[in-house]
Amino acid sequence: MSTQAAPAAVVTNLRRGILPLAGYAVLTAAMDVYAGNRFEVINPASIAAVSFTLTMVFFAGVEWRRHGPPQRTTLLAHRNDLVAINITTALTWLSTFYALWYLEPAIVNVVGLALGPMIMTLTGPLLRRHSTVMATEVLVSVAIGVLLAALMWTSFSGRSGLGDVPTADAVLGLVFSLTCAVGSAVNIIYMKRLHDAGCEAGTVLATRFVLMSVVAWILVALEGQPELMAALLPGAVVAVIGVGLPIYVLQVGIRYTEPITTSLLISLSPLFAFAMQFADGRLRFSLYTLAGVVGVVVLVAVGVVARRSTVTAPVPSGADGTTGVPPARDHQASAERGGSSP
């Protein structure tokens, strides 16, 4: 690829990634609102067991039909990252489900996703050494962290959409939300690592939900009265709108964007969650929640625009008189050559 074509390729990749990542944000918001409502009557473990078992069977069946069983050599070659993504997937989703049991969906959504950029600035260079984080993205991430602290204050003070929340519930919801945020950010990095290593998307999707399914069924077994029949329909809905379809569009988006950009884009989800949650009669309008969510959305826009401006800006001319351009990222060049997503 010529140096003149490099900026165009980078911008094209960014455009290709924005639409699926926006779709992921909408679907995630819908899942949080729906699941939060269902958790009022059904234990999260039962819904998790049904939804992730269905998801695991679906993706494993698709991969088996297309390419046969995963090759042992492929699994061994990527075993460390595949194990890591199983752990982060289980950590993220179980934390999300239990956080929704205690807190307003929009707040769980904003903590779980919008905190990702701040975590990404700390963990990205450690887990994926050639990743880049801009100074503007660092500032945006810190500002998002301040807004998240303010949103958590609304929950503790009874100003959230759920009104008065017992202190113990608010604390548990905060702990689960923070755990979800850490797991989600690290999960994105491991997905990108698998893509960079050339691991096929089907292999990842067929194997990443194994631990989550096992843990969920263990939790169901520990329940005194499992609610599996009542969980069948909600579990199937969550499997489609909350796991299967979102994870597909997320991986398409990740193929074309840097992890920090991915994390910033999916942080738009709380705005959708705030709008959708009024279909749930338990929740009321909260000006504090709205202000925090809008603030996060504005900061997301700043981060994405800054990233776009950087990849399109020319660098100073070289000694030979040609116009310099920033080199395309390794994974972006790979995508242009038809590399597979994780």
Score class of each variant (00 low, 15 high):
Q71L: 07
D32L: 03
S46L: 03
S46P: 03
R16W: 08
E40K: 13
F59Y: 09
L54Q: 06
A45S: 11
S51A: 14
N13L: 04
E63Y: 13
A60E: 02
A45H: 03
A8R: 15
A22F: 08
T53G: 06
T96V: 15
H78S: 00
A35M: 10
P70Q: 01
T73P: 01
S46E: 00
F97M: 08
E40S: 12
T89E: 10
Y98A: 04
H67G: 14
Q71V: 01
N37Q: 14
E40P: 01
R16S: 12
V41W: 10
A49T: 12
V10R: 13
A48P: 03
M56W: 13
D81N: 12
F59H: 00
L27H: 03
P7N: 05
A30S: 11
G61D: 02
Y34K: 02
V50E: 05
Q4G: 15
S51D: 07
W64T: 04
T28Y: 14
E63K: 00
I87L: 13
F52R: 01
F59L: 04
V83H: 07
I18P: 15
R65A: 13
T74Q: 10
L19R: 12
V26E: 06
A29R: 02
T55S: 06
A45Q: 04
T55E: 01
V11K: 15
Y24I: 08
L94I: 13
Y98N: 09
N86E: 05
N13W: 00
R79P: 09
V11A: 15
T88C: 02
I18C: 10
L14W: 12
L82G: 12
H78P: 04
T96H: 13
A29E: 04
R16G: 09
A45R: 04
T89M: 13
A30H: 07
E63S: 10
L82V: 05
T73H: 15
T92K: 14
A49R: 02
N80D: 11
M31G: 02
P7E: 03
R72A: 07
L91Q: 04
P20Y: 06
S2K: 06
W64Q: 06
A9D: 09
M31Q: 08
V11M: 14
